[in-house]
Design a protein around this nucleic acid. Structure first.
Lengths: 183, 183
DNA sequence: GGTGATGTAGACCGAATTGTCTACATGGCT
DNA sequence: AGCCATGTAGACAATTCGGTCTACATCACC
């Protein structure tokens, strides 16, 4: 991977996630990264292509993080407990891999674009499917109702934590409820 | 209320909700509404003031809608059932009062602005508190754990429905789980 | 050393951004 | 009639937007 290209993606992802995509112009991406505009357009056909690359990068980071958090679980109870304590840690800005918490990048991005067929929104949906798949793979047997419950509460917890709720208490409640459901 | 002012708010809310706030410029609001730019700035000091007015309008519409959907419930079970069937109907674009579903306007707006102290984000938090309060008021007795569970799953359902999930099945699962929790 | 390919820096372009200003029309109230 | 609030159209300003183009630096290869 070309180092300038990677630098552009890293910078764009950071700025987009912190501020929202439509609040960040190409000029800001290049001035923060120190890369020339002409170089950016040599690597990406348009701003949209850069956005998609940033989404892909974020997806890889998040998927690897989640995979690592859940791997080695020995029961559904443990998957639930690990998942929500990882989320709680993220909400409190203690997960360096994911950067300072400002909600889910994919939910946030969905809010900014309205064309459901755009590559951007397609990728956001793909990310959510993949996350569901990762969780599913770590559950001991594929209990679809439990998986749905986990995914719903995960999204709920993220949104509430973003809008100023107490992340630790929300995730604790999710864990409690889901473990009650499972036993 | 001045009719031009009201027209501006209605137009802005519609455009903002459908497309995202940062995707809509002042020029579009005035050209769609047919109101002169000078008039807009006679009523609103800035775009931000117009945004706040649109948020307020949306909050009033949503709060009244929710209040009406929940009023007359006779049990916690019924509150849960009514809430999530109302949400399902919203997700399927059957709630004319709320317009075509494109997620929660306040969550979406939170995604576009990063200054947590801005009036915009303060209002988004206020809205969520008020919605919680409305639900709480309709529950038979203030069971804090149940209220938390309802609020978490409500946000989760909205997000999943927005990202292409099956709204009807998600709300059905929420209802099922919460009613199990309550009994 | 000379040459051609490639990557980069940054000036530049037209359009769009929010917001201001001038000049004028309309309509109700005293 | 006179007055004031409210409306209109739209030119204008300053900035920023995404995107292109020219000019130059660097580097491998003969």
């Amino acid at each position: 991977m070309n180092p300038k290209r990677q630098l552009l993606i890293d910078t764009a992802l950071d700025l987009f996630y912190k501020n929202g995509i439509n609040s960040i112009g190409i000029n800001e991406v290049i001035s923060v990264s120190g890369v020339a505009k002409r170089t950016l357009y040599a690597h990406f056909a348009s701003k949209e292509a850069l956005i998609v690359a940033a989404l892909q990068q974020r997806h890889e980071i998040f998927a690897a993080w989640l995979e690592q958090k859940l791997s080695g679980s020995n029961s559904n109870q443990e998957v639930i407990q690990r998942l929500f304590s990882a989320l709680a840690s993220w909400f409190e800005h203690k997960e360096n891999t994911l950067g300072d918490f400002r909600g889910c990048f994919f939910i946030n991005t969905s809010a900014e674009f309205s064309d459901m067929n755009s590559e951007i929104l397609q990728f956001c949906r793909f990310h959510k499917e993949q996350v569901r798949e990762i969780i599913s793979r770590h559950l001991i047997d594929a209990d679809s109702a439990l998986l749905d419950a986990i995914c719903i509460m995960k999204e709920g917890a993220i949104v509430i934590a973003q809008l100023g709720g107490d992340g630790a208490s929300v995730t604790a409640k999710c864990t409690e409820m889901l473990q009650a459901l499972e036993s």
